Simulated assay, not measured.
Amino acid sequence: MFSRNQKLLTIGLVVLLIAGLLVGCGGNEQSSQDPAQGDQEKKAESILGDIYLVGATQGGGGVWDMVGTGLANVIQQNIPGSRITFVPGEGLANVKTIHKGEGDLGFMHSTMAFAASQGKEPFDAVYDNVRALFSVYDPSMQFVVLKSFPIDSLAELAEKKPAIRLAVGDPGSITELASRALLEEYGITYKDIESWGGSVQYKSMGEAADMMGDRLIDAISITGTAPMGALQEVATSQDLKMLSIDKEVVDRIVERYGFSPAVVPKDAYPFLEADVPTFSFRVIIGTPADTPEDDIYQIVKAVGENLDYMHNVHSNLQNLSLEYMAEGTGISLHPGAEKYYREMGVID
């Protein structure tokens, strides 16, 4: 399978060959084609016939895989001649992939898209050639501790300095970055935890849940849409508690990293006694800034007109609405998306 860049390179070589032949036949006549205009025409080429969707695997069991499959179904069934090609991605790297134009649509996190547009950590340069189509769902930070562990707040963790065994997500993942930012707002570093006799363990959600179920760790700092199945499973064998995040800390994290204030509702888990203040981010779909406006308009319209179907794709999408789609993306909406939302009266 050829990538879009390889296809464009092949087409470009053919065009140059034909142009050379025409010049040879026409003596000293020069083409009236403006090179800059030629580039603009390439940028305006429709993506609908071969859309590269980055970050999902067709038929896979992950959330992005299932949402991506549902999104592909909606697009292909409602836009004649459209075709989706699934391209596996790596979370944070998806922003760079879309920025470089190596994919047409891509899953990404709103906070990371924002950080990339500003050249902030974890990015080493500005990646601002990305625009948003819509928000998809909003994972929240959930800091869960064994009920028997001798702290009841993150402030108490900083004060008492217990030997906590904490799982923070895979290195460099959005969960790990959010966990590190949260701890640092309470004046805690990974080295501090190790100096207390504790440990910081880089584990996936499934691994961390299994370890907590076996009491091999004391706490999980995890991001996801509540209720999370992994935490529900742990709660069947262990007594748990979720630590709230102080408002002033949430406010600082929102300002510095582009997260949003959030609440884990009391009814999300049987071990909660009240709503738990926290912060969240959005999973969004992004596209290169120069993707044709009409293409994005058609894609967003197809999704907007099939929300009932999307609600059944995954439980994370049950509250998806046009209003939700148009907000919280962290970066500017693509003009094609803006056009649709304006037509529907969602934005001014």
Rank of each mutant, 00 (worst) to 15 (best):
E121Q: 12
E121L: 13
E121V: 01
P122D: 06
F123S: 02
F123Q: 02
D124Q: 06
D124A: 03
D124Y: 04
D124C: 00
A125T: 01
A125L: 01
V126G: 00
V126Q: 00
V126Y: 00
Y127A: 02
N129A: 10
N129Y: 07
V130H: 02
V130R: 05
V130N: 14
V130C: 09
L133Y: 10
F134I: 03
F134W: 15
F134L: 14
S135I: 03
V136Y: 12
Y137R: 07
Y137M: 10
D138Y: 08
D138W: 07
P139R: 06
P139K: 08
P139F: 04
S140Q: 14
S140A: 15
S140K: 15
S140N: 08
M141W: 07
M141D: 10
Q142P: 04
Q142W: 01
F143D: 03
F143T: 04
V144Q: 03
V144F: 12
V144L: 06
V145P: 04
V145N: 09
V145E: 05
L146Y: 00
L146P: 04
K147G: 08
K147N: 12
K147H: 02
I151N: 01
D152P: 00
L154V: 05
L154A: 01
L154N: 10
A155E: 15
E156C: 06
A158S: 15
A158G: 11
A158P: 05
E159Y: 00
K161F: 01
K161A: 12
P162E: 08
P162D: 06
P162G: 04
A163S: 09
A163H: 03
A163V: 00
R165M: 13
A167P: 12
A167W: 10
V168E: 06
V168R: 11
G169K: 04
G169W: 07
D170Y: 09
D170P: 07
P171H: 09
P171A: 12
S173C: 14
S173T: 09
S173G: 11
S173D: 09
I174A: 12
I174D: 12
I174L: 08
I174E: 09
T175H: 07
E176T: 00
L177N: 11
L177E: 11
A178K: 03
S179T: 12
S179K: 08
L182M: 15
L182E: 02
L183H: 03
L183F: 11
L183M: 13
E184L: 11
E184D: 07
E184I: 01
E185F: 08
E185W: 07
Y186I: 06
Y186A: 12
G187N: 08
G187D: 08
G187Q: 07
G187V: 10
I188W: 12
I188P: 08
T189C: 07
T189I: 09
Y190F: 15
Y190H: 07
Y190T: 01
K191F: 05
D192Q: 12
D192H: 09
D192T: 06
D192E: 05
E194L: 06
E194N: 13
S195I: 01
W196M: 10
W196G: 11
W196N: 13
W196A: 11
G197Y: 02
G197D: 06
G198P: 05
S199F: 01
S199Y: 05
V200L: 09
Q201L: 13
Q201T: 15
Y202Q: 13
Y202H: 15
Y202F: 14
Y202M: 13
S204C: 04
S204I: 04
M205I: 14
M205V: 13
